[in-house]
Design a binder for these strands. Structure first.
Lengths: 346, 346
DNA sequence: CGGCCTGCTGTAACCGCTTTCATGGTGCTC
DNA sequence: GAGCACCATGAAAGCGGTTACAGCAGGCCG
């Protein structure tokens, strides 16, 4: 007999597994097995259970199964800036496949610094809440990673590569090379770089820089580091960067911005400064941001939604022991030429 | 005595409430009370328990407390387009306050149609997973709302107002009025509207239209519905809308787009069509999208992150029985004049 | 035709926390 | 000093599933 619920528990009369068991005339164990598609259940029984469950609109309480199995069927996306273009696209990709596979997607934002980093650090509670973690361009220390591994959390990274963690993203060296080559082909020699932040060990911009420099050298031109300026992927940083570069004794004829958003800043500032793009200055970005088309920005395209989707699939496959067919590593990139690049002025 | 865990349960040795109880020399009940700040615990005992808990790095298993209390300490944000500018800002706002209050933020995307709507419909499982729901511009039927209410889910809506559900957002009539007034002041009389989708009962655009028409009439001008074109808030729709409007016998001298993103489409198409903004055509949007500044778009500003934050606070206050100090209803809007609006051409 | 293997079910012991209810000890009041 | 209210605490019954283990048939083999 079920006991009466305590008064303050105005808990609804949702049907439980016991109700279904009673209705189907079997034990709860059988209901559990039948509904989850486990073997060793007579087909006739399974059908009967399913019917009863349906009639009662039964759904297993996730909290209860979580407690019993240790699986929460949800995965977290850890992101620096939730409303950034890149992150939100990754999240969208993740959510789509999670929903499809019956997982919940929980988002957690970590400050740009290490604020809030305890979320997944040592004594954190995140591993009790989710089965897997997807880091989006967040830099995680080896210690944190080790702690996570010890808790047998499945982790995947998107963008920034993490040691000993499968990652999806793009070949950033290739990105740098592609952009540089495009500019070189147009005849540019002095090329400014709007880089990532100088202070953190963020691989993505570094790789792009490497690719850029490789292409330059291959073409017989020595890159000029005095033309590199750091940025933090914001529009404002892009605008500032342009001003900095223009103050150079021998300013560049083209700028390679490591993100479209910073390139937007360049466009904005250029307009204010009366500089014509691409007549006075060529500009190329990375991302193919939704509005890149609007402003006619030449850029290196990447499919960010897909990064998120692949990451999620990776995590889920790992979680469920499915041999994953997902390709880890670099996805395709391609250059999209629009109106912000052209030959240098005489 | 704890029993040996089944072999396949390689569950980690995380400390449980029993461990803490043992270490502190009290019962689990006392530990529970002490750690949660409940009354009727001697201060000395509380301290002892806290110390023990800390030493053991104890954290209550969320799944277990969820099962016991019926609260999951997580809230869902239900969104149409996760990677849209508006949604992602709302999500960011929600996440920020959830994190602060110790709640998890789970995102769920619903297709633009009613696909996936079962997520929160009748026999859904969402109410077992989260304590509250924040709908972002999603149209929820009365039935669905009733089902949710019956499950005593706390729901709040952002943007689109839902019957009998507290909502946060802006005064969309005011938005329409503001934009119309600005255009009228500049001397425009024939004003095109890029509206929301025509097929769904989405209040937001309807209100804006009402405000627009009110301002027009107040100024003694009858709005011309043949200048209204439907859109779905995408850049592409904006571009299409411009072409449609230009095909009109007597095309407008100004366009009021109900979203900046659609306005971007207008800018894009205008550039291709050789139409100069604002010389040939004035354009005003709504949102103050991050790149509105870049393209110099005049627009009606709203603080979307704040909408999300307020919604989350509303939900949490309600959940915790705190008398909420959060202002429900409309937040402030203001017009930001940039370079896409000017007097009509002769 | 008995023994065994195999396949289907049921029983019950958990998962780890919350909360009711009972109990014992104090401090007061009269 | 007895009676009483109140505070601090503990024992134990859940919350709603999952799963190890045992039991019970029926089919097959020798």
């Amino acid at each position: 007999m079920r006991h009466a619920a305590p008064a303050h528990h105005i808990r609804r009369d949702r049907s439980t597994i016991e109700d279904v068991a009673a209705a189907a005339g079997v034990s709860v164990a059988t209901v559990s097995r039948a509904l989850r598609g486990l073997p060793n259940v007579a087909e006739s029984t399974r059908k009967r259970v399913r019917t009863a469950a349906e009639a009662l609109e039964y759904r297993a309480d996730p909290a209860a199964s979580r407690l019993a199995t240790g699986r929460s069927r949800s995965i977290a996306v850890v992101v620096q800036l939730l409303n950034g273009w890149y992150s939100s696209h990754v999240v969208a990709g993740v959510e789509a496949v999670c929903a499809d596979k019956g997982y919940d997607t929980v988002v957690v934002g970590v400050g740009p610094g290490s604020r809030d980093r305890h979320v997944f650090g040592g004594g954190s509670t995140i591993h009790r809440r989710v089965d897997g973690l997807i880091f989006v361009d967040v830099i995680v220390s080896d210690d944190e990673l080790a702690a996570l591994a010890e808790q047998s959390m499945v982790v995947v990274s998107v963008g920034h590569e993490l040691p000993s963690v499968p990652s999806v993203g793009i070949d950033d060296v290739e990105v740098g090379r592609l952009a540089a080559q495009h500019l070189l082909d147009l005849g540019h020699r002095r090329i400014g770089l709007i880089n990532g932040p100088a202070t953190v060990p963020f691989r993505v911009p570094h790789q792009r820089q490497l690719g850029f420099e490789g292409a330059m050298r291959d073409a017989g031109h020595e890159p000029d580091p005095s033309l590199y300026v750091a940025g933090d992927f914001t529009i404002q940083d892009g605008a500032d960067a342009l001003r900095t570069l223009l103050a150079h004794d021998d300013p560049p004829t083209a700028i390679f911005s490591f993100a479209d958003e910073m390139a937007f800043g360049v466009i904005l500032a250029a307009r204010e400064l009366g500089i014509s793009i691409p007549d006075d200055l060529s500009l190329i970005g990375v991302d193919d941001h939704d509005v890149a088309g609007v402003v006619g920005l030449t850029t290196v395209h990447q499919d960010v939604d897909d990064h998120g989707a692949r990451a999620a699939r990776l995590v889920i496959d790992e979680l469920e022991g499915t041999p994953s067919s997902v390709t880890t590593g670099a996805g395709p990139v391609r250059i999209v030429v629009r109106r912000t690049t052209g030959p240098p002025a005489q």
